[in-house]
Structure formats: C-alpha cells, structure tokens
C-alpha cells in the first residue's frame, strides 16, 4: 500500500523546517548571549564537586538529577522488556575454544569495569562505561550458552536492577532531610557519596543491559504457570 503523495512531500518539508529552526536556535544560543558562560562557572567549581574529572563532576554533581532520570529510563526500559514475554531460549553450549576464551575474557571484562568505575573520578570513565563492561561480560556469557548470562535468580535481578535508582533517590531525599537540598552534596563527603552512587549505578546498568540482551522476563527454575 503506497502512502498518499501529499504526506511524502509534507514530511521532508516539516523535517527541513525543524532542522532549520534547530540550527537557528543553536546559532542564536552561541552568539546571542554575551554574559558569563555556564561552562566556565562549572569548570571553576570542579575541585569542590568531589571528583576531579570535569565530566564526572557534571554528571554526578552539577547535573545529578539528569543522571538519576537516565537510570530511571534504563529501569523503565527493562520493565518494558520484561513485560513483553519470557526470555529467548539459551544459546547452544560452546565448543572448547569458545569456552576457554570466555573463561579468559569474562574476568578481564569485570576487572576492566571496576577499573573504569574507579578511574572515573579523575580521568575518562565512570558508571555507564563500567556498567557497559559488566554488560559485555554478561552478553559474552549468554552467547556461550549460559542461560541467564551470569545473572542471579529473579528476585535478586529485580533488586540489582532497581538498586542504582533507589540509592541515588534515597541519597537525594536523605540529603534533603538533612537540610542540604535534593542531591546537593556536602563538600567533605561528596567524593564518597558519588562513589557509592556510581558503584550501585554500575551494578544496575550492568544487570539491566544483560537482562535486556536476554530479551524477556527471566525464566524461573521452579515451575512457573506461564
């Protein structure tokens, strides 16, 4: 069935108009304002943020609310995937070469994830990259025939997937209750708060990515009715 020709003409025109207005907005934003830029203000405050790497301090401190919402988006995506149906049947068991390769690669990926998490405080790295490494370890295990990609039983999966968002949110609310404001870290302990949030976020991101690759609700080992 061919769509009507008016639509074929209208969609590119609308897209063009959208692109032009976005370009105009960018140009206007770049030259229209001559006052102090946010980037300079943020760079000055990096030493006080609890992380010496600018990107980490923006993601976890100055813009922490946004990162919290990103974690919530991942969690919501996982809920969507789990609601679609059971996971795909596991891959066939690996041959000798693949099995021994997996035995080498998976521990290396987990160690790399831990390194990226720790190094994120002062160099490129951080929770999302570290979580992606954990996810890659799980994907490798899944491809090698592990039925759950190294994930624990379903109740633990739920807890781990929600942990990042939960800890982040509780941290924000706790700081609010202490009178500091939502996700406004006190200067002395900001580094440790950020580290706790990043560590739990890494676990959650890793578990979410593995569960997303499995592509469905985890199959319980006990007899489930459907």
């Amino acid at each position: 069935m061919r769509p009507p020709s008016l639509l074929c003409l209208l969609v590119p025109l609308l897209l063009l108009a959208l692109g032009l207005s976005l370009g105009w907005a960018l140009g206007d934003g770049l030259k229209g304002y001559s006052g102090e830029r946010l980037a300079e203000v943020a760079l000055e405050l990096v030493p006080e943020s609890g992380a010496t790497h600018p990107v980490t301090s923006v993601l976890l401190n100055f813009r922490g609310y946004d990162t919290l919402l990103e974690l919530a988006v991942l969690l919501t995506a996982l809920l969507g995937i789990w609601s679609l149906g059971p996971a795909a049947p596991p891959y066939p068991p690996p041959g000798l070469v693949l099995a021994s390769l997996v035995g080498w690669v998976v521990p290396l990926l987990i160690i790399t994830g831990g390194y990226l998490l720790w190094v994120g405080a002062y160099a490129p790295g951080g929770a999302f990259q570290a979580g992606a490494m954990l996810g890659a370890a799980g994907v490798t295990l899944t491809l090698a025939g592990h039925p759950t990609g190294g994930l624990p039983a379903e109740p633990w999966q739920r807890l781990l997937a929600a942990l990042g968002t939960l800890v982040f949110l509780l941290m924000g609310l706790g700081l609010m209750a202490l009178g500091s404001g939502f996700l406004i870290y006190p200067k002395g302990i900001a580094k440790w708060l950020i580290l706790i949030i990043e560590a739990t976020a890494t676990l959650s991101i890793g578990v979410t990515l593995i569960a997303a690759f499995l592509g469905g609700r985890p199959m319980s080992l006990r007899n489930r009715s459907r």
Binding site: V55, A88, P124, F128, Q129, A132, M133, A136, F213
Partner: peptide, 25 residues
C-alpha cells in the same frame, strides 16, 4: 575521550548486540 569510550562501549558494542538479537528474532 569520555564520549568516545561511551560510544564504543554502549553505542557500538551493546546496542549492536541488542539489535543483532532483535534482528535474529
């Protein structure tokens, strides 16, 4: 480098794996 790392790990690697799984289905 932050974005490069994220793009290689998540954009190319894991999204690719997810989409290959989707394509297989």
């Amino acid at each position: 480098p932050d974005l490069a790392l994220t793009e290689a790990a998540i954009g190319a690697g894991l999204t690719g794996a997810l989409m290959l799984g989707a394509a297989r289905r």
